Amino acid sequence: DVPLPAGWEMAKTSSGQRYFLNHIDQTTTWQDPR
Rank of each mutant, 00 (worst) to 15 (best):
19 Y>L: 00
25 D>Q: 15
34 R>A: 00
9 E>Q: 12
3 P>E: 12
5 P>T: 07
23 H>T: 04
10 M>V: 11
4 L>I: 08
4 L>E: 03
23 H>N: 03
29 T>P: 03
6 A>F: 11
21 L>S: 04
32 D>P: 08
2 V>Y: 12
11 A>H: 02
1 D>C: 14
34 R>G: 04
22 N>T: 03
29 T>N: 10
27 T>R: 13
23 H>C: 06
33 P>T: 02
34 R>Q: 05
2 V>I: 13
29 T>L: 05
25 D>S: 14
18 R>Q: 09
12 K>P: 02
32 D>T: 07
1 D>Y: 13
3 P>R: 14
33 P>F: 10
3 P>I: 13
14 S>G: 12
22 N>K: 05
1 D>R: 15
24 I>T: 11
31 Q>G: 11
27 T>A: 08
17 Q>G: 10
16 G>A: 06
32 D>K: 10
6 A>C: 08
27 T>P: 02
14 S>V: 11
25 D>G: 13
24 I>K: 14
6 A>D: 10
34 R>P: 02
34 R>F: 01
31 Q>N: 14
18 R>Y: 11
8 W>F: 08
15 S>W: 12
11 A>I: 05
27 T>G: 00
26 Q>Y: 07
14 S>N: 12
25 D>H: 14
23 H>G: 00
9 E>T: 12
14 S>H: 13
15 S>T: 11
34 R>N: 05
3 P>H: 14
22 N>H: 05
6 A>I: 10
10 M>T: 11
29 T>A: 07
29 T>W: 08
11 A>T: 08
19 Y>C: 02
26 Q>W: 02
2 V>H: 15
22 N>V: 04
23 H>K: 03
10 M>P: 13
15 S>P: 05
1 D>E: 14
20 F>V: 03
13 T>D: 01
33 P>H: 03
22 N>M: 00
22 N>A: 00
23 H>P: 02
10 M>L: 10
14 S>A: 14
15 S>H: 10
13 T>A: 09
28 T>M: 01
22 N>I: 00
23 H>Y: 01
14 S>L: 10
20 F>S: 02
2 V>N: 15
20 F>A: 06
11 A>L: 01
32 D>H: 09
26 Q>L: 05
22 N>C: 05
18 R>V: 13
9 E>G: 15
32 D>E: 06
5 P>R: 06
21 L>A: 06
31 Q>L: 08
14 S>D: 08
17 Q>H: 11
18 R>H: 12
11 A>Y: 00
14 S>F: 10
20 F>P: 00
15 S>L: 10
13 T>S: 08
30 W>K: 00
8 W>Q: 06
3 P>T: 13
14 S>Y: 10
1 D>G: 14
28 T>L: 01
10 M>G: 13
19 Y>K: 03
6 A>G: 10
15 S>C: 07
21 L>P: 04
6 A>P: 12
32 D>A: 10
18 R>T: 14
33 P>R: 06
30 W>V: 00
8 W>P: 04
5 P>Q: 07
17 Q>K: 04
16 G>N: 08
12 K>Y: 09
6 A>T: 13
9 E>V: 05
16 G>Y: 03
12 K>S: 11
22 N>Y: 04
28 T>H: 05
23 H>R: 04
4 L>R: 04
22 N>E: 03
17 Q>S: 11
25 D>F: 14
20 F>T: 04
19 Y>G: 04
21 L>I: 13
12 K>N: 09
24 I>A: 09
30 W>S: 01
31 Q>H: 14
20 F>M: 05
26 Q>R: 15
24 I>V: 10
17 Q>V: 09
31 Q>T: 12
3 P>Q: 13
27 T>C: 10
8 W>L: 04
18 R>F: 11
11 A>C: 00
29 T>M: 05
24 I>Y: 11
2 V>F: 12
17 Q>W: 14
29 T>R: 07
31 Q>P: 02
4 L>G: 01
4 L>H: 06
32 D>N: 08
6 A>R: 12
31 Q>K: 09
22 N>F: 01
9 E>H: 06
23 H>E: 02
14 S>W: 14
25 D>P: 04
7 G>Y: 06
12 K>A: 08
10 M>S: 14
32 D>Q: 09
25 D>A: 15
23 H>D: 02
10 M>E: 15
32 D>L: 07
19 Y>Q: 05
22 N>R: 05
3 P>A: 13
28 T>S: 07
3 P>V: 08
16 G>E: 03
25 D>V: 12
1 D>P: 15
26 Q>K: 15
24 I>L: 11
5 P>W: 01
31 Q>D: 09
8 W>M: 00
19 Y>R: 00
19 Y>W: 01
10 M>N: 02
13 T>I: 07
34 R>H: 04
18 R>I: 15
5 P>M: 05
5 P>E: 01
26 Q>N: 00
9 E>I: 04
16 G>C: 07
24 I>P: 10
8 W>V: 02
31 Q>A: 12
20 F>Y: 12
12 K>R: 11
9 E>L: 01
19 Y>H: 03
13 T>L: 08
19 Y>D: 03
11 A>P: 03
10 M>W: 09
25 D>E: 13
8 W>R: 05
7 G>L: 06
27 T>Y: 12
9 E>P: 01
4 L>A: 06
28 T>I: 00
29 T>I: 02
11 A>D: 06
29 T>S: 09
18 R>N: 15
8 W>G: 03
10 M>R: 11
2 V>G: 15
16 G>I: 02
18 R>G: 07
4 L>W: 06
32 D>F: 07
1 D>I: 14
30 W>Q: 07
21 L>V: 09
11 A>F: 00
22 N>Q: 05
19 Y>E: 00
32 D>I: 10
27 T>K: 09
25 D>L: 13
15 S>A: 12
17 Q>P: 04
5 P>G: 10
12 K>I: 09
31 Q>S: 10
18 R>C: 09
